[in-house]
Design a protein around this nucleic acid. Structure first.
Length: 494
RNA sequence: GGUCUCGUGGCCGAGUGGCUAGGCAGCGGUCUGCAAAACCGUGUACAGCGGUUCGAAUCCGCUCGAGACCUCCA
């Protein structure tokens, strides 16, 4: 296994080049990764889960390969406007006004809930989780830098990035594949007055209206930073002027990430990011699931099963497995049928993993292609984090395990060791699956179960099937399934 | 309207020129007191029409359909 791990050459699809590229970090053995986190004004939904799980997979895999990864994922708690990019109300402030609480109460409330959901999904906490509101100084400094270089202008206390000027010697649209002329001609004319010289320009700093509760002093006005500023400022602060990976949902590609590139390129005179990675959307009946579309199902709803579209509750690990069974760059359509299939598939995988622990090695038997399976798993992950292919390959290992358990296949000590290593590495460490059934008092329960099973076995030997069936049925009501096999009876939770 | 992506068997979902993806469901069998699980076997899938090629789901063109971005959204 180690040998595949060491040989690994990871290929990453770079949104910037629209091609797969061999991943080479700026500093050997160290990786800097920045991912756009949530704007904390509402509960996390499936889309948040997908983004978090996608980059959790990247984080886990690179860590597994031996890289030291500094993973920064921000919390947006200021500057994210509700409607038109520069005229709407701040999302946090709006929520605070509606609920008559402090904006920071909104932030705290939803941040805590976000963390809870991510923990449930077994998403590892990032190395640094900076808040936009905690980095006003850095953001203001960056705006000043851009102003000084002449790529921004101030109007009535607000500062805007001059996209037209930037386009003269840079390519605004390099990431999203847009042309500046199209952007200028296609951007919708906003109602009301705009201080911007050009509709494609975006705000670096906004002056706060008197009614606006979230405000900070700056050289230009009491106000707040533009949405794109935070990621540029915080990414630079914690990962440097240029870092390896920047991730986020595809919907952030334009204008958010495009603008980040423009700002940082001007401020630091270099492109901020080597590899841009974007996860695709989750769809519901073929349509994107999104907060603004009102069709987003919250994770709490899914875990509890209380939403009109849900036929049942789905556990966090089912959701995680469901998401990992699709490649991160494909859209993934939500349906009860698909989730139920994922639930069953996951169970099969986990049962096999438990079976594996009890498996006994047979002396001298030949290798059973375990190396090939391990190699295929690493190949899949090295190919732009293809978790669906890795999972498919793990099911090949499941076949081996079950066959060995049924005595149809002999596995020797070396094979067994390799197989255990493979399953453990991939299922639990790389894919980040947890066995939800495995409780701390499992040993006690198993002891009790062995007693019950032996009593029932006595009945069965006496052909007292009435008694044995009563035992099985009543355990069934507790969601415990008994399985009578050749070598005795085993049990598992439904 | 502009830019881009996608269309794979009952469902989900891999696969970029020739070799079984995989999961779920179904069917037949083995095992079992009966079940469950597991195992074995089982599917003329690649939106349509043309073209390139010895050979295409895979490359090219067109048609149809779906979606994303161009406003906030993971």
């Amino acid at each position: 296994m180690t040998k595949f791990r060491n040989q690994a050459e990871v290929v990453v699809y770079n949104s910037l080049s629209r091609k797969k590229e061999v991943f080479i970090p700026i500093n050997p053995l160290h990786i800097g990764m920045y991912v756009c986190g949530p704007t904390v004004y509402g509960d996390a939904h499936l889309g948040h889960a997908r983004a978090a799980i996608t980059f959790d997979l990247v984080f886990r895999y690179f860590s597994h390969l031996g890289y030291k990864v500094r993973y920064v994922r921000n919390i947006t708690d200021v500057g994210h406007l509700e409607n038109d990019a520069d005229e709407g109300e701040d999302k946090i402030a709006q929520k605070a006004r509606l609920e008559q609480i402090e904006p920071m109460e909104v932030v705290q409330y939803y941040t805590v809930r976000y963390h809870k959901n991510m923990d449930q999904l077994n998403v590892l906490r990032p190395s640094i989780e900076p808040h936009a509101s905690g980095h006003l100084i850095e953001q203001i400094a960056m705006v000043e830098k851009i102003l000084k270089k002449g790529y921004a202008y101030e109007v009535d206390g607000s500062v805007y990035f001059d996209v037209e000027k930037y386009s003269k010697n840079h390519h605004y649209g390099i990431l999203s594949g847009r042309k500046i002329e199209d952007l200028i001609s296609n951007t919708r004319k906003l109602d009301g007055q705009s201080d911007k010289r050009n509709s494609a320009d975006f705000a670096l700093w906004k002056k706060a209206e008197p009614s606006h509760i979230m405000r900070w002093p700056s050289p230009w006005s009491d106000g707040f930073p533009g949405w794109h500023m935070e990621c540029s400022a915080m990414g630079c602060k914690y990962l440097g002027e240029q870092f390896d990976i920047h991730g986020g949902g595809m919907d952030l590609l334009f204008p958010h990430h495009e603008s980040e590139i423009a700002q940082s390129t001007v401020a630091n005179e270099k492109s901020p990011v080597r590899y841009w990675m974007h996860n695709n959307m989750i769809t519901l009946n073929g349509q994107k699931m999104g907060k603004s579309l009102g069709n987003a199902i919250s994770l709490d709803n899914i875990f509890a099963g209380n939403h009109p579209l849900l036929e049942q509750a789905y556990s966090p690990m089912t959701i995680r497995f469901f998401i990992l069974q699709a490649h991160y760059r494909s859209t993934l359509d939500f349906s009860n049928e698909a989730l139920q299939a994922a639930e069953k598939g996951l169970k099969k995988l986990l049962v096999a993993s438990t079976t594996l622990k009890k498996l006994k090695a047979v002396k001298g038997a030949a290798a059973q292609g375990i190396e090939a399976i391990a190699k295929a798993c690493y190949d899949a992950m090295n190919d732009d984090f293809s978790s669906p292919v890795a999972i498919a390959t793990l099911f090949d290992a499941v076949k081996l395990i079950n066959a060995a358990n049924d005595g149809l296949l002999a596995i020797n000590e070396t094979d067994l060791h390799q197989l255990k290593q493979l399953m453990d590495d991939f299922i639990f460490h790389i894919l980040g699956i947890q066995d939800e059934e495995a409780g701390s008092d499992l040993e006690l329960v198993d002891g009790l179960m062995q007693t019950i099973i032996s009593l029932r076995q006595e009945a069965r030997v006496k052909k007292d099937f009435a008694t044995s069936d009563v035992i099985r049925d009543s355990l069934g009501k507790l969601n415990i399934v008994l399985k009578d096999g050749k070598d005795g009876t085993s049990w598992e939770l439904k």
